[in-house]
C-alpha cells in the first residue's frame, strides 16, 4: 500500500490513469486519421509501394459520375431519414405523452423494439418482405388491391426507398424516445395559462410546443443526419452486389468499401473517406452551433 502511494501521487496519477487510453488512442485513432490523409495523396499498387500522385485521387473522384451519384443518394437518404424521424418521431412522441391515451407502454415498446435488431438481421427480414416476386409479402399485399408486383429491391424507382425504409424502421424508436423526453419536460403551467387564454390545441401546438421543442428537433435532425451520412450496412445487405440496382443505391460508405476492398484502390478509397469526414465535421460543427445557441437562450 505504502509503495503504491509513492508511485501514484496526486500529480502523477492522472497521467497514469489516462495513459492506457491515450496509448490506444494515439495508435488506433490519431495515427490512422493522419495516415488516411497521407494515403489519399497516393496510388497504392502494393501495400509497401505508395506512389505519390498529389491530388490525383481527388481529381479522379470529382471527375467520376459514380461519386456524384453516391453523394446524391447519400444526401437523399440522409434527408429522408431526417424528415421521417423528425416528423413521425414528433407526432408519435406527442401521441404517446398524451395523458388520455391508454396503454402507451405497449406502443412505446413496439416502436422501440426494432432499435434492438442488428442491421444485417433487419435487412434479411426486409429482403424477405420485399422479394420481387408475387411471393414477397409486400407484393402479395398490394396484389390484393390489384397492384402488380414491384421490384422493390432492384428497380431504380424503389431500391433507395427500400434502403430508407430499412434505416427508418430501425431508427424511429430512438427518435421517438428523444421526443418523449422532450414532451415530458415541457412545463405544465404554461399550457394551463394558454388554455385559460383560450388557445386552441392547434394554436398551443404551433405557438407553444413547437418553439419549446426546437432544441430537441434540432438535436434529432442533426444526429440522424450524421448517422445517415455514414450508411453502409443497409445498402450492403439489401444489395450485396451494389450494382444490381444500378447506381441508384450506391452511397458514399458503400463506394468507399467497393473502391478499397473490391477494386483494391486504397488511396482512392482513402480520398472518399476524407471527403466523408469533412462532411461529417461540417455537420457536427453546425450541430454544436445550433445546440450551443439554444443553451444561451
Amino acid at each position: 500500500m505504502v509503495g503504491k502511494r509513492h508511485i501514484l501521487t496526486k500529480k502523477t496519477a492522472p497521467y497514469v490513469f489516462i495513459s492506457p487510453f491515450f496509448i490506444l488512442f494515439a495508435i488506433f485513432m490519431v495515427y490512422p486519421i493522419i495516415y488516411s490523409v497521407v494515403l489519399s495523396f497516393h496510388d497504392v499498387k502494393q501495400l509497401s509501394q505508395l506512389n505519390f500522385i498529389g491530388l490525383g485521387n481527388y481529381k479522379l473522384l470529382f471527375d467520376t459520375p459514380r461519386f456524384y451519384r453516391a453523394l446524391y443518394n447519400t444526401t437523399y437518404y440522409a434527408a429522408g431519414m431526417c424528415l421521417l424521424n423528425v416528423i413521425l418521431g414528433f407526432l408519435i412522441g406527442l401521441m404517446l405523452t398524451w395523458k388520455h391515451v391508454p396503454g402507451t407502454s405497449f406502443y412505446r415498446a413496439s416502436v422501440f423494439l426494432p432499435v434492438l435488431v442488428s442491421t444485417v438481421i433487419a435487412g434479411a427480414v426486409f429482403r424477405l418482405i420485399l422479394v420481387d416476386t408475387e411471393g414477397g409479402f409486400l407484393n402479395y399485399l398490394i396484389g390484393r388491391f390489384g397492384v402488380p408486383p414491384q421490384n422493390w429491391l432492384d428497380s431504380p424507382r424503389w431500391a433507395l426507398k427500400s434502403v430508407l425504409a430499412l434505416g427508418f424502421w430501425r431508427s424511429l424508436g430512438l427518435s421517438t424516445v428523444y421526443f418523449i423526453g422532450g414532451f415530458q419536460s415541457l412545463p405544465d403551467d404554461l399550457y394551463e395559462a394558454a388554455h385559460i387564454d383560450g388557445a386552441s390545441p392547434m394554436q398551443q401546438l404551433r405557438y407553444l410546443t413547437i418553439p419549446l421543442m426546437r432544441p430537441i428537433i434540432a438535436f434529432v435532425s442533426i444526429v440522424t443526419l450524421i448517422q445517415a451520412y455514414l450508411v453502409f450496412t443497409e445498402v450492403f445487405v439489401l444489395n450485396p452486389t451494389g450494382g444490381s440496382a444500378r447506381d441508384t443505391v450506391v452511397t458514399l460508405g458503400y463506394y468507399l468499401y467497393e473502391s478499397a476492398f473490391r477494386f483494391f484502390k486504397l488511396g482512392y478509397g482513402a480520398a472518399i473517406g476524407v471527403v466523408m469526414t469533412l462532411i461529417i465535421v461540417v455537420l457536427s460543427i453546425i450541430q454544436l452551433k445550433l445546440l450551443g445557441v439554444f443553451q444561451n437562450e
Partner: peptide, 20 residues
C-alpha cells in the same frame, strides 16, 4: 482532441487501420 475525434467516422479509418 478526444472530443473532436468523436466526429471522425469509422469509414475513413477502415483503410489505414486495416493496413496497420
Amino acid at each position: 482532441i478526444v472530443l473532436a475525434s468523436m466526429m471522425i467516422p469509422l469509414h475513413s479509418l477502415v483503410i489505414p487501420l486495416f493496413m496497420l
